[in-house]
Nucleic acid binder design. Structure first.
Lengths: 170, 170
DNA sequence: CTTGACCTTGGATTAAACTCCAAGGTTTAT
DNA sequence: ATAAACCTTGGAGTTTAATCCAAGGTCAAG
């Protein structure tokens, strides 16, 4: 049994977020204390973890509500309806996995190309890695638009560099 | 070469979205016509596809900007920095894939449980499928909170049912 | 028995990502 | 040659998902 602050810090969200989820029907505490405090159970924790996992892979809160609604409430939904919906979600999930695998491959390729040697430096962009990935093209794009806005990239690289000392390439 | 409307309908977004992406430095047309119309190239199309793919798997536009910024601009970034960043993104992507695989497994399990026979109807919820998935538990959760808000679920099921006639279970 | 860290509600504010609108210029098909 | 269907800019409005604030109640420690 957890109070709102405990559950929040367990899952690294804010109490306000949990109240927000409650207001929108995603997660209600299974009980309240005498004084009116929200009390969450382990089942609630599982549910929250599910919500956060779904959110992390690009489902909207509405879609997550749908996912959580998949229950055979015979009064309202026929099994066929539910199966149709599950199949839809399965397709979405499979599509996401496929796209992520392409990303993963591209990033690995990029990592290799970038750090294999100093001479390949000008081929170091994710888009080139992506394209080399899909169709091996003889013709090489000449002009490459540089990205203007580097303000928070700078910050994230600082963090990235601080977090791990494994920058050993080139 | 595409005008904004063509590119938009090709990728199933709105022209306004493309102008929005331009304003925020994600995608600028490689040229303009005499009259000032935006003209997009195939490289721009690739870039847009990349953006949409990244968005679909849960990256924010800021993160996508970072991904697109991964170029070895030696004047600004050391290779080690870039590698650190790529590694970070790789970890994120791997984590997302792992989570999606859990989803996929759960959904498959749910689909099977739901439509194997009418007697297992009350076990038809994604959360139960998820938990059965992780640890086989002897104890069974008694109370299961039903979800209140079914308004757009109804709509999506209608679409789902209309789209495919393969609802043949139970 | 009060101080500090919690919790409650309701409502306002924010940030991200579009989405729409108005007023006008351009292209294309009849 | 003119209407329909595009395009331009600037700015306002919307939706989603929080996040913050104010005014007050609860609880454990010293």
């Amino acid at each position: 049994m957890y109070r709102i602050g405990e559950l929040a810090s367990l899952c690294e969200v804010k109490p306000d977020t949990l109240r927000f989820y409650e207001k929108h029907g995603l997660l209600a505490p299974s009980s309240r204390s005498e004084s009116g405090y929200r009390v969450y159970s382990d089942a609630d924790l599982s549910r929250l973890k599910f919500i956060l996992r779904a959110k992390a892979v690009g489902f909207s809160l509405n879609e997550i509500t749908e996912l959580l609604s998949i229950e055979l409430n015979k009064a309202e939904w026929a099994c066929a309806d539910v199966k149709g919906m599950v199949d839809d979600k399965l397709e979405q999930v499979s599509a996401k996995i496929a796209e992520l695998l392409v990303f993963q491959d591209s990033l690995k390729r990029l990592s290799d190309a970038c750090c294999g040697g100093p001479e390949s430096a000008e081929h170091c962009s994710i888009l080139e890695a992506l394209e080399t990935n899909r169709q091996v093209q003889a013709e090489h794009h000449a002009g490459f638009t540089p990205v203007a806005d580097n303000k928070n990239l700078k910050a994230s690289l600082a963090i990235s560099a601080a977090n791990k000392g494994k920058s050993s390439c080139c």
